[in-house]
């Protein structure tokens, strides 16, 4: 059985990935001085987005994700619609992996996540090439994608602990 199952019904913690996504979007720009190489966009919001893509079945999910993407556009000084499009694309890519990731191990999740993040960052690169408003530095973008993939377990493990509750409704 997949570690992440339908979570929108019956379980009291279905909102955890959404809450995490919202927090990562809102607090993405905190000035801490801990990461001085701040040209990197760590993109931690992709982790809860991945879990939402794998678990959520509500029709409202894409709308919520697109709205959070718009908020991320506002907070990241990007043209409106840039992150909204990326979030929805990533959500669709994640949702398409739902059946493939049934009965798989952590390494498969990590690998799939990495491939999806790389694909999404490549789409961001292509969008930046097309849009006149967006100018990117290619190396930091590539490093950001690598950093995001590396950081996956940091967010995954706390959610893994919640997994019983997340998938509880379906198992019962």
């Amino acid at each position: 059985m997949s570690r992440f199952r339908s979570s929108t019904e019956g379980s009291g913690v279905w909102f955890v990935p959404y809450l995490l996504l919202t927090l990562f979007v809102l607090l993405d720009n905190i000035q801490t001085g801990i990461f001085p190489a701040s040209s990197l966009e760590l993109g931690l919001y992709f982790v809860p987005l991945f879990l939402i893509g794998l678990t959520a079945e509500s029709d409202a999910t894409p709308i919520i994700i697109a709205l959070l993407g718009l908020i991320n556009d506002v907070s990241n000084e990007m043209p409106l619609g840039f992150y909204a499009a990326l979030f929805v694309i990533f959500y669709l890519l994640s949702a398409s992996q739902k059946s493939l990731l049934a009965n798989t191990r952590f390494s498969s999740y990590w690998l799939t996540f990495s491939v999806l993040v790389m694909t999404t960052y490549f789409i961001a690169y292509l969008m930046a090439l097309v849009l006149n408003d967006v100018h990117l530095a290619t190396l930091p973008l590539f490093l950001s994608a690598v950093a995001c993939c590396t950081a996956f377990p940091l967010i995954y493990f706390p959610l893994y602990l919640l997994d019983d509750k997340l998938g509880g409704s379906e198992r019962s």
């Binding site: 720009n29 905190i30 000035q31 701040s38 040209s39 990197l40 966009e41 907070s75 990241n76 000084e77 990007m78 930046a128 967006v134 100018h135 990117l136 530095a137 290619t138 930091p140 973008l141 950001s144």
Partner: peptide, 11 residues
């Protein structure tokens, strides 16, 4: 300085 909006796209 309260927020740092640095990314490959904006500084």
């Amino acid at each position: 300085v309260i927020a740092d909006v640095n990314s490959p796209f904006v500084h």
